[in-house]
């Protein structure tokens, strides 16, 4: 257990020192948040609800990004450089290595959530009940699991360049179709129908419901769990195939 804690601590330090993380996961969402709630006057009935809604969008956007990209790309890097191979001759087991990465990543997510929520309070005076703050934060943490699974799927790729390219495109596509940048109603009807079957919308919607004083819809949970299972099985299958040398 001590090993896993140590390992997680190091993984955490590494993510926080990564300039890409700071840019994509903290700076970008906060800048977007300010731009779309302060500078552009988005026509909404209720400015306060919009400020809270978009705060959730940006937090989801941030956590989704580091789930897909940070861990996935790092896994590819470590494998292509021979580090993963080297870890196999140390007493650290594959399981410990992997769970430490997941754990470290989760702590980083907590950090992102706290920073972006704080930005929301500072810039727009977003006010939610303590229960709503905690509930939405926990939702964002838990519902990020399918995206971590996508990250580990990205992590099975052979080349770092491919992993970076594909995960970026995937990330932005998911963000747009999930209604994270702009509410989903502004998308064409066809796109909206497709989005209903993609995971990002459901990730966001859970949090949007919470800040409106409701519970995430059952549909949100079911679809996210479905994606989690599919991506986990797929990435475990590929990993196993790669291991047989």
């Amino acid at each position: 257990m001590k090993i896993v804690i140590n390992q997680s601590r190091i993984e955490m330090i590494r993510v926080l020192r990564n300039p890409y993380y700071l840019f994509w996961s903290l700076a970008m969402p906060i800048v977007f948040y300010i731009v779309f709630t302060k500078i552009f006057d988005v026509e909404t009935a209720d400015k306060e609800v919009w400020a809270a809604h978009y705060l959730m969008s940006m937090t989801v956007f941030s956590v989704m990004g580091s789930s897909i990209m940070t861990m996935g790309i790092r896994l590819v890097e470590e494998r292509s450089q021979g580090w993963t191979r080297y870890m196999r001759v140390t007493p650290l087991s594959d399981f410990q290595y992997f769970s430490a990465k997941m754990f470290g990543q989760t702590v980083v997510h907590v950090c992102s959530i706290v920073v972006i929520f704080t930005a929301g309070i500072l810039f727009n005076g977003v006010r939610l009940s303590i229960f709503e703050w905690l509930f939405s934060a926990s939702w964002i943490l838990l519902a990020s699991l399918p995206f971590l699974a996508i990250g580990s799927l990205v992590g099975t790729m052979k080349r770092v360049d491919t992993a970076i390219g594909i995960s970026n495109v995937l990330y932005l596509l998911l963000a747009v179709t999930g209604g994270l940048w702009m509410p989903i109603d502004v998308l064409p009807k066809v796109m909206q129908n497709i989005s209903m079957w993609l995971p990002a919308y459901h990730f966001g919607n859970g949090a949007w419901e919470i800040v409106r004083g409701q519970l995430p819809e059952l549909q949100n949970i079911l679809i996210l769990v479905g994606y989690l299972v599919v991506f986990m099985v797929l990435s475990m299958y590929i990993r196993r195939k790669q291991d047989v040398v």
Binding site: I10, I13, R14, R17, Q81, G82, W83, Y86
Partner: peptide
Amino acid sequence: IGVMLQEVSLMDTI
């Protein structure tokens, strides 16, 4: 055991 493989790669950013 202790091992040094060819072309040492190290975990980065630490």
